[in-house]
Amino acid sequence: MPEQERLATLTRILRDLLGDDTIELTMRTTRQDVPDWDSFCYVNFIVAVEAEFRIKFRIADIESFSTVGTIVKAIDTEQTR
């Protein structure tokens, strides 16, 4: 699946979680860029992404995702594993 499609999926998940339809994620977005994207919402987001793509991240990775882009790449790695 191309990058853009994944970004769109992640954007939809986060919009649902935060109830904010103006959110637009890019590969460079960080958590600080999105208002109210706190640790709790982040965990919900991660689990929703795991369910959507039928993968499971390693806990050490979850902490070190610095941008949305690193999450998109991690989805690739996990799916090919």
Binding site: S39, F40, I46, V47, I59
Partner: peptide, 14 residues
């Protein structure tokens, strides 16, 4: 502490 606990709980619910 917080993320591992929340993650485990959320995954279990899922």
């Amino acid at each position: 502490l917080y993320v591992p606990m929340t993650l485990a709980m959320t995954r279990r619910r899922m």
